[in-house]
Amino acid sequence: MRHRPPNINRWKGENKIEKKITLSVIKADVGGFVGHSGVHPELVKKACEELDASPLLIDHHVTYVGDDINLILTHELGCNNEDIRRLARNILSACTEVAKKLKLCGAGQDLLSDAFAGNIKGLGPGVAEMEIEERKSETVIILMADKTGAGAWNLPLYKIFADPFNTTGLIIDPNMHCGFNFEVYDLVEKKKINFAAPEEIYDMLVFIGAPGRFVIKHVYHRGTGEIAAVSSAQPLYRVAGRYVGKDDPVCIVRCQTGYPSLGEVLEAFSHPHLVAGWLRGSHIGPLLPVEVKDAHPVRFDGPPRVIALGFQLAGGKLVGPQDMFADPAFDNARQVALDIADYMRRMGPFEPHRLHLDEMEYTTMPQVMRKLKDRFIDLPEDRETGT
């Protein structure tokens, strides 16, 4: 919800504005309604009230997907700004108090500590930010997903910025023909590496094809060096012997005029791909593209889904949103995703529908192993092979 009307009086000249604009998307699960399927309207209302009162922002929009509330903010304070992070955390904390009064499911589960340290790490809210100088026409798409992890964007971002079968502009647009640079995070080792596309596509695919560990964080235009896309990928943290971190990711993608067109960005979601998440974060399922009104995952707490909101930026004002998946052209993609969901669900607790035991967010494996450890005995030696 956005209450401030668009205002383009901040423009200075035809193509430039006074300062760079920062677009921040910050999300968190502060309480599900009902179960983990949605966000209660009172939480959205509370967030809008708090944001309206802030002098730090140019504009804002509040939305949700599944049980995650998403704050879309514009300001002039740059990325990783402590005041913006504190504002977001205070707002999410206020929403948590509302969630607790309503006894919503998992109230405040993404706000693990009352102490604010100036940044938001892997077990708290998810963040995607970019600082840009607005073009004459600045088109952005905000992608937001629920019931999946940060690696869910790997395949779509590859298609959008490196696959000419998806993005014809890589071939026919002289402003894109130079390609894009991909910054990939190793979430386990907490390292990063850069790949140049198209020259290093094969090397890059070795890594981003393992989205549970290697995640595309930034994409840059090779001609201008400017940011093209950013995700909410954050390093994983080892807790109780296993790696855990942010799920339900967000992503910002710039479109048009030297970047992939709006249609090329959305085309990457026309054929649903498999992602990790779904019920208890422990299953594989299709990423279902839906309009906001259908962003309530209830079948087996899923399947995982994604929404896309489109905005034009005008002096930092958010002109929009347009609900980009509210298009019957995606009906077939939705049907394919539902058919895949049917197929995967028939496998029940068997892999590959259930994640490998090493990857499961919630698992009883350690407890069961301790319980049964004395019942495991060594295999007899095989006389023919010596094993």
Rank of each mutant, 00 (worst) to 15 (best):
T96C: 05
S37A: 15
P5S: 10
G118E: 07
K19Y: 00
L71V: 04
A99K: 10
R85W: 04
F33L: 09
E18T: 04
V30H: 02
K16C: 07
L102W: 11
V62R: 05
R85H: 12
L87C: 01
I69R: 00
R86C: 01
F33V: 10
L57D: 09
D52E: 13
I8H: 10
N119Y: 13
S24P: 08
E82M: 03
L92G: 06
P55N: 07
R85G: 03
C79L: 00
I72Q: 01
I17G: 02
V44N: 01
K27E: 08
L23C: 12
T63N: 13
V25S: 04
L73I: 12
I21C: 09
N15I: 13
L123E: 06
A53R: 15
I8N: 11
A28Q: 01
P6L: 06
C79F: 00
K101Q: 14
D52A: 06
N15R: 14
N119C: 14
S37K: 15
S24C: 08
T74P: 01
L123W: 01
H40G: 07
T63D: 10
L92H: 06
L71M: 09
V34I: 14
T74G: 01
K100W: 00
H3C: 11
A115F: 05
R4Q: 09
E18S: 05
V34C: 06
T96G: 02
F116H: 10
L73R: 11
E42W: 03
P55H: 05
I120S: 13
I72K: 01
A107C: 05
R86F: 04
D83K: 12
A99T: 10
L56M: 09
E82D: 04
V98A: 01
L71A: 03
G106A: 09
D29N: 15
N80K: 11
V39S: 06
N90A: 08
E76K: 15
W11T: 06
K16E: 11
E42S: 12
L23M: 14
R2N: 15
E49D: 10
L43A: 02
K103Q: 11
F116N: 05
L43P: 01
E42L: 14
T74K: 02
I69K: 00
I91S: 02
E50L: 08
Y64N: 07
C79G: 00
V44I: 12
D29K: 07
K46N: 14
T63Q: 13
L112N: 12
V30F: 04
L112W: 04
G78C: 15
E76N: 13
K103D: 05
F116W: 07
E49G: 08
N70R: 00
I21G: 03
Q109G: 01
H40F: 02
K101I: 11
K101G: 12
T63A: 12
D29M: 04
G13N: 11
F116L: 07
K12M: 08
